[in-house]
Each structure stands twice: as structure tokens, then as C-alpha cells.
Design a protein around this nucleic acid. Structure first.
Lengths: 319, 319
DNA sequence: TTCAAGATTGCAAACAGTTGCATCAAACCT
DNA sequence: AGGTTTGATGCAACTGTTTGCAATCTTGAA
């Protein structure tokens, strides 16, 4: 049977009152050094672990955090989750992870289900309406990642800057006409990319889209990219870029000889596919870490993280 | 300020005792239909959500599960986590997710930290000693995935069978000498693969290894594979296979023309890299779901899930 | 020697729920 | 009509921990 040893067992075994045991754990400076070591050794021996749920009941702090992502299986998220977990762990927090399957309704439902059980929530690329999110933020501390939202602490990754770098890179190679293979309609990221790309001198930008933000979406856009007359492409994300490269291949165009392609995100598959993808690296790990730190420290700020260009094999000078 | 509405608020507002409110949520059949609907509507109006921590205190059931993986960033795990999450969600459980960074010590530490806070733990590909795991299983219900362990509920994926299929596939294409690019020394999976592969008639098996279970490990094994004289390869996993293909390419050998390569796992990058990888698909999603179900239902069983061969572009008849 | 301050510990009331038991009325039997 | 069952609700104790307050014991100063 599974035994459970409580603070009372420790108190009894070490001949002190439970409050003293409690204090040796949560306010050690208030208890005599000798008593403290005795209690600690008894606790150790009995295998005592404070019950966090009970503690939460009185303190109001659960030492749990919730992390909600749109799709766990999207390679973009795991590094973020991993970093968030590490940061939480470092401060002795546990992390609930949830996946909404891209459904806005699930997002709110999960968040509410978590609300009493966590000290705060990280919402990654939330799909809910701003109104919903703001309402949510009134019930539980929230940090949103990858979404601009007034009045709510935010961690942004500066895609615009990265997109600018990417287009400049293409321009530097000699490309004068660049296609933007955009994402879903209404995406904040897509807008950022477009405005940033439009500001690079000497490059004519054409938009191909909207597209599904997947490999399939990129694949389907290949013909339109070819017909656009562009020699350089900036894709909505790496998956789209990979799909596009394959699609172009099927049309007899090879990358980077005939067309240069830049992705965004820097996910693992981009490093493993051929040609290795030139891409705008998103600081997902840093974002995860930062979001957790903001949450734990309760600071309300809008932060923007730098992105950078990683040049690999999918870009070259035009023919 | 963040308001928190308790069962007492609901009781007061609806003119009944707290126990009645409690029962309308946890034992609805014990309360009069009229009272129930009234309480429910008041609760709804006030935005009441039962506090799970407090509930856990008396019932002993937290409705939380813990899931511990070796490396969140390893593409093998996310589909498993996603499925586990969905299964948990379906039964109104929340999921803690933790990452050990491949450190056995972290595994035990995390498990113990969770122990009072969850109703059970799923350990995926645990690296700790069997002894440690068994000890752990005495303190908290545990299901292990991808590791054979007596006395502890287990979910296995039948890699052996899949490996057999893979080697048979190679044999069917005409390969008579197959290299096994193995994983780390002492890996359960490696052993399974070897014994299964050895039983395919008409094929001579050579082992190349041990290797790190990564792209890099596969890359480093390329020369030894070439020197082995094998025309077909079964790699420890897809990452190794991808690394190997690249390594072979650098040695002037192309896949599948010169060498056929089969991976194991069926991770996303395997589908996206070129040539698309022929691989043994591991039912990771099913495993995640099943592990959670076993845990929640408290059944103690050793289950083994089928694997299957996915034939793509990295295998062909030998020259 | 006396008193105030400080250190250490105990006491008991929270925290937000659940649940065995008692109560009470209404309905059901005979 | 009186006794019994049934259904609905209230009462209060309990879960494991924290924490304000009080009590006790030391210590140091005047």
C-alpha cells in the first residue's frame, strides 16, 4: 500500500509541535538550529515531503504554472516548453502543459480549468479573441507569447526584424523580386513580415497567399511562386518553406540554384531536410524562459526578443 | 484584484448548506433536482469553480497526472505527450509534464516532487535503474513506457517485430548483408532489434555500434557502415538514419541507389528530409493514450503495441 | 535584582472542500 | 393511525499545512 507521511508524523517522531516542523521548511530562520537539524533528519528518514496542495490552501500559492500551446506536435513549441519547464523547475515550480488542438474554445476552457490550480498561465500563440484573453487575465495572472495584447504581460519575438534581415540577405545575393509566401489570413506574424519586407530598398515584394501554415500549404503554393517571377522567397515558416521546396522540385525548379528560399522559426526539421534551410531563428527557448520568469516575478511588461538570420544552403545568388 | 469565489459563497447565495453545494458537484444524484439547478445556476453566475487542491485534500485524489520524458525536444516525444494529454483531458485530468534532460537523477527527483500532487506518473523511456523505479512505484502509481520492468504496469512498443519487418523488407529487395547501426550500449531497444533482425533467413547481419542516438551519431557511423560491406541498413532511430544518410552522401554514396536505409520511430523530420525515410512507425500516440488509461483505471498490465513498416524513398534494390 | 527585549515554541484558527451521521418531513404500508 | 422507509438536507469533523498570537525561557542592560 502507498503510505503517506504527514507533517504530524514528523512532529511526533521528533518531539515538537507541527508548527515547528512547518517552520523548519517554510521559515527556517525562525527555528533553533539544533531543532531544525533534528527535524530535518527525522523528515529525511521518514521520507516526508510537504503536501503542496495543502500548502496551497493556506498560502494561496500553488507553485504550479500552466502552459497552453496550440499544438504540441508542432515542432515550434517543444523547445519553448522545454525552456519554460527548466525555468520553472529552477524556482521549484511545476508545470502543467496543455494542448488546445488549435481550438480557441479549448483555450479558454483549459485556462479556466487551470485557474485555481496555478499561480499563472503562459499562453503561447493564443487563438482566442483579445476580449476573451483580457477577461481571462482578470481571473488569473497571464503572460501571452507571440501575440500583441494591451494590458497583459507579453513576450514577443521580433519577426519583423528577422524578416527584414532575410530580405536584405536575399537582396545582397542579387535578388530583386521576392515572394512572400504568407500564412493564414489575419495572422499577426504575416502582417509583421509584410511590412518589414516592404521596407527593404531595391527589392520588389509580391505576396503569395494566404496559405495553410503547413508543409502542405507550402507545397500547394509552388506553382504560384513560380508564376510570380520571383527568384527569392520568404516563407511564413519552416514547414511552409520545406513544402515549397519540394513543390518547386516537382515543377523542375531546384533550390537554391533556380530559387532561393528562406524559412522562419528554425525548427529541427529545417536543419535535417535538404537543402538545409536558411531561416530566421526564433528565440523560442528564450521566450519560454522569459515568460515563466515574468509570471513568477509578477512583472507586467511587453518584451520583444531579437531574432536572427541563420544562413544555410537554401539561398544563393540568382541565375 | 483577482477574486476567488468559494463553495461558501455559492451556499450563501443559494440559501443552502455548503454540503449541499458540494454534493451538487460531486454527487448530483443525492440532491433534489430543483435545488441542484438552482445551485448550478448560482454557481454559474458567480463563476464558481471547485478548488481542486482543497478537494484533493479530503478525497486523496488530485485528478492530476505526471508525465516525465527524457527530452521534450526529441521529436519522438511530442506526439506521445499530445495523445496522453488528450486522453487525460477526456477524463477531466490535468497533466504535469517534466523533462529530465536525460539525467537519471532528475528523473527520480521529479517523480518524488510530483508524488503527492498526482494520482499517477507516466515514465517515458526512463533511464533510472530498475531498482529505483520499483522503489518509486511503491510510493506512487506508475506506468512505464518503453522499458520492460517486472511488477510495474508497462506499455511497450514492439520494436522487435518492426525491426523484423524492416529486415524482411530489405531482404525482399535483394539485400543479403544488413548493417544494424545500433544505439547506446545497454539499450533495451537495441537488444530487441538485434535479436529480431538475426532471425530473418537469408540475411547476414553485422552490428555497427554503439552510437549516440542522434543525427551526429549516425553521421559518425557512415564510414564504418561503408566498410561493413552491407548494402542495407537498419538504424537505431530516424535521427541516426538521417545523420547516416548525410554521412554516406559525404562519402560519395547515395541513398537508396548505393545503400538502403531504414529508420525507426517515424518522426516528422523523417518525412520531411530527403530521401523520405523508410521507417518502422512506433505507435507513440497510442502508447501515450494507453499509458494514461492504465494509470487512471489502475490496472496493472504489461501491454505491447504493434509497430508497422512505412515504406518511403530511402530503400531500393541493391545495385 | 528587575525589567525589557529577543528567541523559540506551542496553540488554535484558518484555508476550501468532502462525507458519515443525524435530522426531519413526506410518502408508503399495513 | 402508527410505524417504517425514503429522500433531501444540515451538522461537524476531517484532510495537511500555514501563521498570528500568546506563552515561555533566555539574555542583556540598567
Amino acid at each position: 500500500m502507498i503510505v503517506t507521511v504527514t507533517i504530524r508524523d514528523v512532529a511526533r517522531a521528533s518531539g515538537v509541535h507541527v508548527s515547528t516542523v512547518s517552520r523548519t521548511f517554510s521559515a527556517p530562520h525562525l527555528v533553533n538550529a539544533a531543532t531544525r537539524t533534528r527535524v530535518l533528519s527525522v523528515a529525511e528518514e521518514l521520507g516526508y515531503r510537504p503536501n503542496r496542495a495543502a500548502r496551497a490552501l493556506t498560502t494561496g500559492r500553488t507553485h504550479n504554472l500552466g502552459l497552453i500551446v496550440a499544438d504540441l506536435a508542432n515542432p515550434f513549441f517543444p523547445p519553448l516548453i522545454k525552456a519554460a519547464h527548466a525555468a520553472a523547475r529552477q524556482r521549484d515550480y511545476h508545470l502543467f502543459v496543455a494542448d488546445t488542438d488549435e481550438e480557441p474554445a479549448a483555450e479558454e476552457e483549459l485556462a479556466l480549468a487551470f485557474s485555481k490550480q496555478v499561480d499563472g498561465l503562459v499562453l503561447c500563440s493564443p487563438r482566442s479573441s483579445g476580449r476573451t484573453l483580457e477577461r481571462l487575465a482578470e481571473r488569473v495572472p497571464v503572460v501571452v507569447v507571440n501575440r500583441r495584447l494591451r494590458g497583459v504581460p507579453t513576450v514577443l519575438m521580433d519577426v519583423g526584424h528577422g524578416a527584414g534581415l532575410a530580405v536584405e540577405h536575399l537582396a545582397g545575393l542579387g535578388h530583386t523580386r521576392v515572394a512572400l509566401v504568407s500564412g493564414p489570413a489575419g495572422s499577426w506574424t504575416s502582417d509583421e513580415i509584410r511590412t518589414a519586407a516592404g521596407q527593404v530598398p531595391g527589392v520588389e515584394v509580391v505576396v503569395v497567399g494566404p496559405n495553410a501554415p503547413t508543409e502542405r500549404g507550402g507545397h500547394a503554393a509552388a506553382a504560384r511562386v513560380r508564376d510570380s517571377g520571383a527568384t527569392g522567397v520568404l516563407a511564413y515558416n519552416d514547414l511552409v518553406a520545406i513544402g515549397l521546396i519540394e513543390g518547386l522540385g516537382e515543377l523542375g525548379l531546384s533550390v537554391p540554384q533556380d530559387v532561393s528560399v528562406v524559412g522562419i522559426d528554425d525548427i529541427v526539421p529545417g536543419r535535417l531536410s535538404r537543402p538545409k534551410l536558411t531561416t530566421v531563428a526564433m528565440p523560442t527557448a528564450a521566450a519560454g524562459r522569459l515568460a515563466v520568469d515574468l509570471l513568477i516575478q509578477g512583472v507586467s511588461a511587453t518584451t520583444s526578443l531579437e531574432t536572427r538570420l541563420v544562413i544555410r544552403d537554401s539561398t544563393a545568388a540568382p541565375r
